[in-house]
Amino acid sequence: MNWESVWRAVRRNPLTLFGGCVVVFLFAMALSATVLPIPDPYVIDADAVLEAPGGEHPFGTDELGRDVLSRVIYGARISLWVGFVSVGIAIVIGTMLGSMAGYYGGWVDGLVMRFVDVMLCFPTFFLILAVIAFLEPNIGTIMAIIGLTGWMGVCRLVRAEFLSLKERDFVQSARALGVGNLRIIARHILPNSLTPVMVAAILGVAGAILTESALSFLGIGVQPPTPSWGNILTSGKDNIQIAWWLSLFPGLAILLTVLSYNLLGEGLRDALDPRLRGMSG
């Protein structure tokens, strides 16, 4: 992977650039939440329940009188955190299994790919629901299960990369020099197969944020009082006719974030991996 080409690609396509800027902005916002001049997102105000935007509360207040703007900003931390960790888990599992399958081939490949096939047969959301509700809907479980059910795509991508890369000259010569398998995988093949993984990761973050909001809708997402965009939006849903601000702002936040991640991910894919151009799915 070559950072210069990434930058060139981003600069060339305004949509990708837009996505990238929003992603950077969200990060900055999430990281600086504690130093921003906003009210404490946990402070309850019994006299300001469900107040419309304006004055002290530019985004209004929620059903406990808490400031929605702060909650949306702090929610960014949680939602992005869920996105990153769960995708991280998926990437690690997918890359490990995919590189094993692609490098060793034979029965290892057969076993891993059957496992992938089995996992792909499950309606993922059903699996996630079952595990979360059976364990406990805390943020750790949610991240773990989204990761554990989301690695199959990465696994296939990495395997495909390995299948083609392992026949290349530099790998063959490393092998001829007696370099160990693990070293070949880690030093020679893996770094060359990371582009599609990165793209998949960026798209995966978007998916994880949406999954968390769907879980929140069912009441088993990130639990209050911790704000996540999903659970703010869900409390907005129940009050949608009297408190539009409670669903509009977190809804827009999700929309904008997922949109930006998708734009960035697809833009990078188009630029870095011409074989995959346009094949979003």
Binding site: V43, I44, F134, E136, P137, N138, G219, P224, P225
Partner: peptide, 30 residues
Amino acid sequence: EGNALRHRTAVIIQERLKKIGVRMKIRVIE
């Protein structure tokens, strides 16, 4: 899990206890 009124009650109690220096964590369980 599944009782919004109890969750909100817990959150309010948490804030009140914080003010007198008692740290209360909330765990919601199926």
